[in-house]
Nucleic acid binder design. Sequence first.
DNA 1: AACGCACTCAACCGCGAATAG
DNA 2: ACTATTCGCGGTTGAGTGCGT
Length: 234
Amino acid sequence: MGRQPCCDKLGVKKGPWTAEEDKKLVTFILTYGHCCWRAVPKLAGLRRCGKSCRLRWTNYLRPDLKRGLLDEAEEQLVIDLHARLGNRWSKIAARLPGRTDNEIKNHWNTHVKKKLIKMGLDPVTHQPLKKQQTESCSQGSCTNSSVAITPLSEANSTEKEQPLTSQTWMEALQDDSWSNFPTWGSEIYSDFGLYSSEDSLNRLLDYYKELGDEDFELGSLGDFSKQLVGIGED
DNA sequence: AACGCACTCAACCGCGAATAG
DNA sequence: ACTATTCGCGGTTGAGTGCGT
């Protein structure tokens, strides 16, 4: 029987996103949120599959994303987390605000891996190369880490992620109690992709100005954006 | 200037997990 | 309990770019 494709392949565009597509996606998500990625392209007027939209949003368009290379502290944290978590990039990314799993994965493969090898460390096990090879291979495994791992995901199992639809999102905005959510504080639900208010939106505006879209304004985002701007202010 | 190689990173693919019916 | 559907993750690819020759 087989698995059905995630979307109708006919008429679905692939490859690099255009500024216009970005604008459509951002406007749609900031206005309505995303209750179902499969429906997003249709509702936003995009000829993309939902998967592609999700990826574009999470890896590139989210206003809270940092740009540029990871600094030394971030890189050290990535190495440390990788030693404990392995290639669980999404878990690692969750501990580096403003960084995506894709970004960290890329950085690991292009920079950190080489750096560790140069230092004589196995980038998989974080053990000295020669020692690790003889020890782990003699135990019948040449790939598994011999590092004692304390799974962070277990340690934080109480941090239950809460699904957020656009409706509950809007309710949260209109209700002061949103700030009492355990991990929210003055930040907005990170999974939704918006950390904080005005800064995020300003960065978004800068982004569009960089793209040469001077006409893009907060007003383009509807009432929703106006409420967002008010959030960061005490 | 032209070419080839190496590197980077955005985007795609396929799979497993989670969820709905 | 089972099947279908959707989502999210990790691995991989390939276009674009920079650099050396």
